[in-house]
């Protein structure tokens, strides 16, 4: 309960800040833009025409859910990659500001254990990112569902995978925020972890390109523990695009991501316990 109370307190702080309102407004504007500018002509479940700003964008008549797959895939990719990057930049300053001198002492003077403070902060930020991802993906699904009659939750699933990726990256950001108390370090670690994770997703293809020896082994060992951001991105795109994916493999991948985040949070706790406030 204490963890949830801390997360709720973080949400209150977040909504008091203008940039989260800006984020909400940006997602809303995008949805309004899609709702007003996209005109779809559906005949017996087939998409017979798609117009954007009055211009025809397709000359192909095909099953509407098949025709919308590229849109759903593009949505998934936007929610997964650029939106996650945007959240990294946006949330970098958040944890250091919550852990700034004065506030942290105040929080620790309350009947709150340190791990609850870290976990509450972490879950609060991750929950916020999930909220905006679900708002964007869910809103788009609803708009396209109303316009075409095809209601699918696949982009929402893809958005949840994007949240999983962000949750993993944010664990590193929080560790940097706690240990260095610097927004720049937090953003730097987030970006580094994000791009290293993208690279780690291609480790099996990249490793053979390196000359055999110590460098390849170091690369393989270092990337083995990193979250495979790009692999999960491909899964998100596949799910949104209607491709069959193995639930066991996706589950394993997500569990691995969460284990990595938990490991980093454990390191964060180890560092946090050392500090005197």
């Amino acid at each position: 309960m204490t963890v949830l109370a801390i997360a709720a307190d973080l949400w209150r702080h977040a909504f008091a800040r203008k940039w989260f309102l800006v984020l909400g407004a940006a997602v809303t504007l995008f949805l309004v833009f899609v709702a007003l500018s996209l005109r779809l002509e559906v005949v017996d479940g087939a998409l017979a025409g798609m117009r954007l700003f009055g211009q025809s964008t397709t000359l192909e008549i095909t099953a509407v859910d098949v025709a919308l797959r590229p849109i759903f895939k593009a949505t998934a990719i936007i929610l997964y990659y650029p939106f996650t990057l945007f959240l990294i930049a946006l949330c970098a300053e958040f944890a250091p500001s919550l852990l700034q001198a004065g506030r942290i002492e105040h929080m620790l003077s309350l009947p709150v254990r340190r791990f609850e403070l870290v976990l509450g902060t972490y879950l609060g930020v991750v929950g916020l990112s999930a909220l905006f991802s679900l708002y964007g993906a869910g809103g788009l699904c609803l708009i396209l569902g109303v316009k075409t009659g095809v209601l699918t939750l696949r982009p929402v699933l893809a958005a949840l995978l994007g949240t999983t990726a962000f949750a993993t990256v944010y664990s590193g950001m929080l560790a940097a925020a706690v240990l260095a108390r610097s927004a720049t370090s937090s953003a730097g670690v987030g970006m580094a972890l994000y791009f290293a994770g993208v690279l780690a997703g291609y480790r099996t293809s990249l490793a053979p390109m390196m000359s055999e020896g110590i460098s390849r082994r170091v690369f393989e060992a270092a990337t083995a523990v990193l979250p495979r951001i790009s692999t999960l991105g491909n899964v998100a795109s596949d799910i949104a695009g209607g491709r069959a994916v193995s639930a066991a493999h996706v589950g394993g991948l997500c569990a691995g991501f969460l284990a990595f985040a938990a490991a980093v949070l454990a390191v964060t706790m180890w560092g946090f316990e050392r500090k005197d406030y």
């Binding site: 495979r228 394993g252 991948l253 284990a259 490991a263």
Partner: peptide
């Protein structure tokens, strides 16, 4: 957790 995560992700990839 790091070891477990690495094992799970290696299966997932």
């Amino acid at each position: 957790l790091l070891s477990g995560g690495a094992w799970l992700m290696s299966r997932g990839e």
